[in-house]
Structures are given as structure tokens and as C-alpha cells.
């Protein structure tokens, strides 16, 4: 078995260092080594999107990456979307629109939608549906999520304008 490596990266604005085997997936590193259990595993094979985190701002599936590949990167997980104990406007919109039931898919969907809104602050319904299509939710039927994201985008546009 190859020796464990020391890696260093920035997670939610904090410098973190940890030891892991080269085969340790990024999601296991986040959950086990960093105790950031907000990122979930729904399939372990890259289909469901539950494990999505932002790597230098771009959504990635942390079950498909090794932790060592993320060395030096800047990561954002669900825990880093708002200051501890608070919710940002996207999270509040999810609550308002009942865009989560069991909440297991929710962290991966929030990170994916965060990236969408950063990229495209005024998405259409279709834009949201398409950006969401790589995340599986078994509970909501998706429509409340689409509504929440559109509502959040409108709110941001209103405040900016």
C-alpha cells in the first residue's frame, strides 16, 4: 500500500492540512478527515450529484476525485455557503419554496446552483432545469427547487438593480 501523503488546501476559506492515502476520495477526506459531513454520498459513481462541492468555484463530484488531486485548491462545501448558524438568500429561498424534503440531496444541489448563479445571474427556467439535471432528488420532483433558484436570482437582480 502506498504511503499516506500530507495535503494542504483551503476549505471554506480556512487552510486545512491532513494525511490521506493516495486512493482516498475527496468526499471521504472531507467527511472523515475534516469532519465536514454536510457533503453526502448518494452513489459513489458520479451520477447522483449529492457529493458536489465547488473546486476553485467550479462544481465537481467529490466521489470521483482523489483528495490528493485537490491539493492546493480552494474548496467550498455546503458548510461554507453562509457564516455558521446563518443561511444565505439561496438557502432561505429553498426553505421558503419547500425545495427539500429529506434534505440528503440538498447540499449537492445548493453547491451546483451556487455555481450556476455565479455563472449566470439571470437564468431562465430552462437554464435552471438543465443545470440541475446532474443532481438526483427523489423527494421533491424538482419544481420547488427550480422555483427557489429563480426566486433567489430575481432577489439578487432586484437588490443589484
Amino acid at each position: 500500500m502506498p504511503e499516506p501523503r500530507e495535503i494542504e488546501l483551503t476549505i471554506n476559506g480556512e487552510r486545512r492540512a491532513g494525511r490521506c492515502e493516495p486512493r482516498t476520495t475527496l468526499v471521504d477526506f472531507l467527511r472523515e478527515t475534516c469532519a465536514l459531513t454536510g457533503t453526502h454520498v448518494g452513489c459513489e459513481h458520479g451520477v447522483c450529484g449529492a457529493c458536489t462541492v465547488l473546486l476553485d468555484g467550479a462544481p465537481v463530484r467529490s466521489c470521483l476525485m482523489f483528495a490528493v488531486q485537490a491539493a492546493g485548491a480552494r474548496l467550498t462545501t455546503v458548510e461554507g455557503l453562509a457564516p455558521p448558524g446563518e443561511m444565505n438568500d439561496l438557502q432561505r429561498a429553498f426553505q421558503e419554496h419547500h425545495a427539500l424534503q429529506c434534505g440528503f440531496c440538498t447540499p449537492g444541489i445548493l453547491t451546483t446552483m451556487t455555481a450556476l448563479l455565479a455563472d449566470n445571474p439571470t437564468p431562465t427556467r430552462e437554464d435552471v432545469r438543465r443545470a440541475l439535471s446532474g443532481n438526483i432528488c427523489r423527494c421533491t420532483g424538482y419544481e420547488p427547487i427550480v422555483q427557489a433558484v429563480l426566486d433567489c436570482a430575481r432577489g439578487r437582480a432586484g437588490r443589484a438593480g
Partner: peptide
């Protein structure tokens, strides 16, 4: 009525079985 339980799910603070350690 919006759900009081939502916040823990939306902030990554929920505790699912794999989060028990």
C-alpha cells in the same frame, strides 16, 4: 407553514446515519 427543520439540512448540520461517528 415553512419547516423549522430545514435549517439543519440547508447548512450541512443535519445528522444522517453516516454522520454518526
Amino acid at each position: 407553514t415553512v419547516r423549522g427543520e430545514d435549517q439543519r439540512f440547508l447548512t450541512g448540520a443535519a445528522r444522517f446515519t453516516d454522520d454518526v461517528r
